[in-house]
Design a protein around this nucleic acid. Structure first.
Length: 460
RNA sequence: GUCCCCAUCGUCUAGCCUGGCCCAGGACGACGGCCUUUCACGCCGUUAACACCGGUUCAAAUCCGGUUGGGGACGCCA
């Protein structure tokens, strides 16, 4: 088995493409086959090397590894030319001299008549030679039916009369998508073509091309689309669609990969899969046939699951750049890991964790006026003052701190929460935070005292 | 418009091929509760679906037909 992922470098690798790549990867690895990457860069105007880089980086980040070096379609012109000659020589293709204007006219009037636009075959039997500006068209069978048993959708068939004579080679000599894909998949020995649903209509054309080439026809599998919340094809307006945007937003690669796999594929009731487990369990027959809506909430859940499972040292090294970006000094591995431990279960993404850990690093805190007004009342400051002495020297253990809260609360006849909140605001600038004894330990007595004093001086 | 595909809780899905174990299971979310120094985490519980119509059958989410709805494709883009 040999599968491939064949993106065109005309944009970032997006969620849908990543899932297609993942399925190809899982399929081939499951069967012990090969998985290759082919960059379809025949559209010189829109292709950019930077996008190729992005695609490579994104696949690598997700843990989707291809075999061998990436293949660039633009460098296979010789093979394409050869195969085109073969088709021409066999009378399976012909030169077409119809002008762009004529083609546009045909399409326009067909649409006006509410018909399916298609080439009328004017040059089909003229035996025209190649000429400047001419294209090569496929002599598509006019009768019969093209059928294949889709690996995901099951039996699919098209009446050949629905298909017109597609352009194989453009006027500039470069092959069009359908022809290049067939020529490459054939010459590269691809056995299984797994791609997006939007290619279903190309498949009968491609099968006809294989037949004309007298080449073995690969198995096809069409993965359903990923939709946005409005059931429209997922696009930028639904939010982030590029894979690397998810890295920036603080998602773990295993979470995204797991989520993407479960979007369309399933294995019983199971939700959590490592890449190895997915490889072991994957099968195209358990990929659903219907489109799926991208659900960020579920991705978030998976991400927090994997964050909770990650070691503090891994999270610390992932978080460090986010702190350095804000100009904070590296407090050292040990402290960083302690900080991580206090925010690991409080953030769904690395970005959220960093945000919740921000107060540890700040030189001075900015108190929300509303919170300050509510908590730094004369009584609140009085409570705060009572913390000064006990916290002056060493940070108490969690147990001792809890006892301190109890004592303070009891002496005032209030709950522990009532005494903890002013201190929380003083130490973190927030009313929600990690546990106070952890914070006290990480900040150290000096900073704790300093922050309490700053809060005491705060004018409501 | 034409062609192709799809149709189970709000969402991802199991079950469908090989009808009965399904008055439909799991997960996310939402809601409620417990835990608790706050916020989370965790735990417990609740909510909610076989699109519709007809047929086959003793029996249909499961098989067949139709309807409706949704998506995709109709480029010298990929």
């Amino acid at each position: 088995m040999k599968t491939r992922f064949a993106p065109s470098p005309t944009g970032h690798l997006h969620i849908g493409g990543a899932r297609t790549a993942l399925f190809n990867f899982l399929l081939s690895r499951n069967a012990g086959g090969e998985f290759v990457l082919r960059i379809e860069d025949t559209d010189a105007a829109r292709s950019e090397a930077a996008y190729t880089e992005d695609i490579l980086r994104a696949l690598d980040w997700l843990g989707i590894v291809h075999d061998g070096e990436p293949v660039f379609q633009s460098r296979r012109a010789e093979i394409h030319r050869e195969l085109t000659e073969r088709m021409l020589a066999a009378g399976k293709a012909y030169h077409c001299h119809c002008s762009q204007e004529r083609i546009d006219e045909i399409r326009k009037s067909a649409l006006e008549r509410k018909e399916k636009p298609r080439y009328d075959g004017k040059c089909r039997n003229l035996g025209l030679p190649a000429a400047p500006g001419s294209v090569v068209r496929f002599k598509s069978p006019e009768t019969g039916e093209t059928f294949w048993n889709d690996l995901i959708k099951g039996p699919v068939s098209f009446a050949n009369e629905e298909l017109d004579d597609l352009v194989m080679v453009r006027a500039d000599g470069l092959p069009t998508y359908n022809w290049a894909a067939v020529a490459d998949d054939h010459s590269m020995g691809i056995t299984h073509v797994v791609r997006g649903d939007d290619h279903v209509n190309n498949t009968p054309r491609q099968i006809l091309l294989y037949e004309a080439l007298d080449a073995p026809i690969p198995a096809f599998g069409h993965v359903p689309m990923i939709l946005g919340g409005d059931k429209k094809r997922l696009s930028k307006r639904h939010g982030a669609t590029s894979v690397m945007a998810y890295e920036e937003a603080g998602y773990l690669p295993e979470a995204l990969a797991n989520y993407l796999a479960r979007l369309g594929w399933s294995s019983g009731d199971r939700e959590i899969f490592s890449m190895d487990e997915m490889i072991k369990l994957f099968s195209l027959s358990s990929v659903g046939k219907s489109a799926a809506i991208f659900d960020k909430d579920k991705l978030d859940w998976l991400n927090s699951h994997y964050i909770k499972e990650s070691s503090p040292s891994r999270l610390a090294s992932l978080l460090l750049p986010r702190f350095e970006e804000k100009g904070y000094a590296n407090p050292g591995e040990k402290v960083l890991e302690e900080i991580v431990l206090t925010v690991r279960e409080r953030g769904k993404t690395l970005a959220e964790m960093a945000r919740k850990a921000d107060f540890y690093f700040r030189k001075t805190l900015t108190l929300n006026p509303g919170d300050a007004k509510k908590l730094l009342t004369p009584e609140g400051k009085d409570i705060l003052r009572s913390f000064v002495e006990p916290l002056r020297n060493a940070a108490p253990s969690d147990e001792d701190f809890n006892r301190l809260l109890e004592t303070l609360a009891a002496s005032r006849g209030v709950g522990k929460g009532a005494v903890a909140q002013p201190l929380r605001l003083a130490l973190t600038g927030e009313t929600a935070s990690p546990g106070l004894s952890d914070i006290g330990r990480i900040l150290g007595p000096e900073v704790v005292t300093q922050r309490i004093n700053a809060a005491l001086e705060h004018e409501a």
